[in-house]
């Protein structure tokens, strides 16, 4: 699906807005869910997703193809999210009991984006984890990024991403077990 680089090049060079629409269509849901794992609120993540695409449309930053387009886009989104957190000085994680109203919206996006039932269960369990665990699991399992790409997005070393991923997996497993999820293999 990663035709984003080509679409973005055409948008940037020819001003073809339909190419930007394609990018938004292909990447908005994934980016929004990823940013939700950072800011802990899908509505704010939606605004930040929009901000990310507005930045592409206005500043038109150059994509240098040092990584995949998705990695690059998610890095921009992550920077937006971190700036947002810095400005509002909010803790990225919000207590689960406060999220009741947000969950239905997130579920709608989640279901549209993640089509497999068991993956949805996993994603919902992920919401109980710390933001860093959520991010690394999201990037590697749902977005299919390699450890190296995830490290680039999260601005960490590959080694620390591997370590984070190991701990995140263990936490996720504990969480899934609590919810009665059965593994076919471990």
């Amino acid at each position: 699906m990663d035709n984003g680089a080509e679409s973005y090049r055409r948008f940037r060079e020819n001003g073809d807005e339909t190419e930007l629409d394609k990018i938004i269509t292909d990447y908005s849901d994934g980016l929004m869910l990823y940013l939700t794992s950072i800011v802990g609120n899908i509505h704010i993540a939606e605004e930040l997703t929009e901000d990310t695409f507005v930045l592409l449309g206005t500043k038109k930053p150059k994509f240098r193809e040092k990584c995949s387009f998705r990695t690059w886009l998610y890095t921009i989104g992550r920077n937006k999210a971190l700036n947002y957190l810095k400005k509002t000085s909010r803790h990225p994680a919000i207590p689960i009991e406060d999220t009741a109203g947000l969950v239905s919206d997130e579920e709608a996006v989640e279901e549209a984006y993640i089509r497999k039932e068991d993956m949805i269960t996993v994603h919902r369990a992920m919401r109980r984890l710390s933001p860093e665990y959520q991010q690394v699991l999201w990037l590697t399992y749902f977005e299919g990024l390699s450890n190296k790409e995830a490290a680039a997005v999260m601005k960490k070393t590959v080694r620390s991403v591997e370590s984070l991923l190991y701990r995140a997996r263990r936490s996720l497993r504990t969480q899934l077990e609590k919810e009665g999820f059965e593994y076919e293999n471990t």
């Binding site: 930007l20 938004i24 908005s28 939606e46 929009e50 507005v54």
Partner: peptide, 8 residues
């Protein structure tokens, strides 16, 4: 979302 992005 697409419409709002273009408007902005």
């Amino acid at each position: 979302m697409i419409r709002d992005i273009h408007r902005r």
